[in-house]
């Protein structure tokens, strides 16, 4: 059941492969075919057994907040890193990630974020000379 979806998702790989010119397209096509075949086998085994067994994609306790925060962290890092520099980006990234934990409080997260920011800026800006300004404003 589930794995049929996976096979379907991989399907485009097959399509793009065959549309390519023969030279560079050979490998992708071959791999695409193999993958589709494997996908079919996996889907087959999933279909073959009685439904309702392994259908849980979600774990027992979905951690929507945790997942969201973990993903939001790097996204904020990208945005803030592009427009305001390393320091705010770091702070936002760590702060938001830390909020994802059930036991976290705003104060704890802020403290951690501040600590990591200072450490990170010292390490990456001054020791490793990363090419990203610490603080800037490049209007939107």
């Amino acid at each position: 059941m589930l794995f049929g979806l996976v096979a379907a998702a991989k399907g485009p790989g097959y399509g793009t492969g065959t549309l390519m010119r023969m030279g560079p397209g050979f490998m992708p096509t071959a791999l695409g075919v193999i993958l589709v075949l494997l996908g079919m086998v996996i889907a087959g085994t999933a279909l073959a057994k009685p439904p309702g067994e392994d259908e849980r994609i979600l774990p027992d306790h979905p951690q929507w907040l945790g997942w969201f925060c973990i993903l939001a962290g790097p996204v904020l890092f990208i945005i803030l890193g592009n427009y305001t520099g390393l320091l705010p980006a770091t702070f936002a990234c760590v702060f938001v990630c830390a909020l994802g934990d059930r036991g976290a409080t705003v104060k704890n997260a802020a403290l951690l974020a501040a600590g990591i920011s200072v450490f990170g800026v010292l390490l990456f800006s001054y020791v490793l000379q990363i090419s990203m300004p610490v603080l800037m404003w490049r209007g939107l």
Partner: peptide, 21 residues
């Protein structure tokens, strides 16, 4: 763990960025 993974996330972000700016 709640102190660990946010810090690690920062290293992930900056590490990937620093590889090619």
């Amino acid at each position: 763990y709640r102190y660990l993974y946010p810090s690690a996330m920062f290293f992930v972000c900056i590490g990937v960025y620093a590889a090619n700016n």
